[in-house]
Simulated assay, not measured.
Amino acid sequence: MPGTDSTDEELVDVYRHHGDLQALATLYNRYMDLVFGVCLKYLEDRETSKDAVMNIFEELVVKLKKHEVDNFRSWVYTVAKNHCLMYLRSNKQLKTVELPESLVQSAENPHLNGKLQQEEHFRLLEKCLQALAIDQQQAVRMFYLDEKSYKEISDSTGMDWNRVRSLIQNGRRNLKNCMDKNS
């Protein structure tokens, strides 16, 4: 019985010749993060991507028996990408929703207020952001606006990783409280 120290090729062979789902699970487990990353890239939704990861495993149960696979990593990447593209192309994702008349633009109900409300929301967000302590403000801006990781923030500011995490969490909570209080 193959173990976690078996090569990809060995696990593929065991699955193809013996139908050993444990071998396939061990193999897939090695690349699950890769598959999730591909799904997240294409589907842009964490929950949908998690579901896709499970669906792709079910596809592999059938497909791996039918295909000669020399490089499992690149093959599973392609399977994941194709799965996501097919998912996006399917009409199952297109849903029609009836909108209330109050939300539909007409001569009596122009949608100029929406843009004004959004601008007001951004002004309030900036005001609340400036109200944060300087180190919280810096960490929140770097994380959310500059899209830096905790490690990147830690490296560029010289702050401990846990301090950065704490600043971002507390800053986010303080921002939310300020926004709720002022809206």
Rank of each mutant, 00 (worst) to 15 (best):
L145F: 11
T157L: 11
Q169F: 03
R141Q: 04
E147Y: 11
W161E: 12
K148H: 12
Q169L: 10
D180T: 07
F143E: 05
R141N: 05
R165W: 00
N174D: 10
T157A: 10
K151C: 14
K176Q: 11
M179V: 02
W161P: 15
R165M: 05
Q169N: 14
D146P: 12
I168C: 04
D155I: 06
L167T: 01
A139R: 02
I168T: 01
D155T: 07
V164L: 01
N177P: 13
R165Y: 02
K176T: 05
L167R: 02
R173W: 04
R165Q: 10
R163F: 01
D180G: 05
S154A: 11
E147A: 14
N162M: 08
I153G: 14
E147P: 15
C178I: 08
T157H: 09
E152M: 10
L145H: 12
Q137H: 08
K151G: 15
Y144M: 05
L175S: 08
R165N: 06
L175A: 07
S156D: 08
D155Q: 14
L145G: 10
C178S: 14
L145A: 13
S154Q: 09
W161L: 13
V164K: 03
Y144Q: 03
N162E: 13
V164R: 02
K151L: 14
Q169P: 10
N174V: 00
D180I: 09
D135T: 03
Q137F: 01
Q169S: 14
I168L: 05
V140M: 06
G171S: 03
D146K: 13
S166E: 03
T157F: 06
K148C: 12
K176N: 12
Q138N: 09
R172N: 10
Y150D: 15
M159S: 12
M142R: 14
L175M: 14
S149Y: 11
G158P: 10
A139Q: 02
Q138R: 11
Q137G: 01
S149K: 11
S154I: 01
N174E: 09
S156I: 03
D146C: 04
S156R: 13
G171C: 02
N174T: 00
L175K: 13
S166F: 00
C178N: 15
K148R: 14
Y144K: 06
